[in-house]
Structures are given as structure tokens and as C-alpha cells.
């Protein structure tokens, strides 16, 4: 199982994924500089990704608190919070692009 991450520079990375893991955790644990300030509590919005439109329909509808966080963080049509997407067979191959606000600034 894997996901495809499009990073801040447009480069694509195929990342090993595990069933039941949050997409945010997968990105973070592979060492990509995702901010994800609140650690997956749906309280910061800095794990925002743009989901490839071909995949969007496969995801569950966002909950109200996810929509609130997308509001606060200028989410677009395909924006989702990667901490609210749980990996499953269905999502094998999921393509997401890291939103600019989710990329850690180089210290």
C-alpha cells in the first residue's frame, strides 16, 4: 500500500503506507517537513493537502470540525486535512499535494 506525495517543489514521492494510519502521519514519518502543529487533533489546519480530484470522491465527507479548520486556513475546492484521512485498501495509490501552509519553513 502506498500514497503519492507531491511536495512543495512539485516533485513526486511514492511513500509506503500502513492500513489505519493517518495520511499526515505517513507523510511526517517519512521525514517530509509537514507542519501538523497539533499532531492530528484537527485543531490547527497545518496538515492541509490538495487531494487529486480523481481521488476526492473516494474519501469520506469532511466532518464539521475539519470544515472549520479548512475555513480558517483558506482551503480550496480539493483541500482536506491529511490528519483526517485514514489509510485503507480503497485509498491505495492516493495522490495528495502538500499545501504551502503545511510546509515547514527551513529553520
Amino acid at each position: 500500500m502506498h500514497i503519492v506525495l507531491v511536495d512543495g517543489h512539485g516533485a513526486e514521492h511514492k511513500l509506503e503506507a500502513l492500513e489505519g494510519w493517518r495520511v499526515m502521519e505517513i507523510i511526517r514519518d517519512h521525514g517530509y517537513p509537514i507542519v501538523a502543529e497539533c499532531g492530528g487533533a484537527c485543531a490547527c489546519g497545518t496538515c492541509q493537502v490538495e487531494v487529486d480530484p480523481n481521488w476526492a470522491a473516494k474519501l469520506h465527507e469532511p466532518r464539521e470540525d475539519e470544515l472549520d479548520m479548512l475555513d480558517e486556513n483558506y482551503g480550496g475546492e480539493w483541500s482536506r486535512l491529511s490528519c483526517q484521512i485514514l489509510m485503507s485498501e480503497e485509498l491505495d495509490g492516493l495522490r495528495v499535494r502538500l499545501a504551502p501552509i503545511s510546509v515547514k519553513e527551513a529553520a
Binding site: L67, D68, D71
Partner: peptide
């Protein structure tokens, strides 16, 4: 102006 008709 807001991106949807739902509010927090």
C-alpha cells in the same frame, strides 16, 4: 464573505 454556508 465565507467559503461555505456553515459557521463555527
Amino acid at each position: 464573505i465565507h467559503r461555505r454556508d456553515g459557521f463555527r
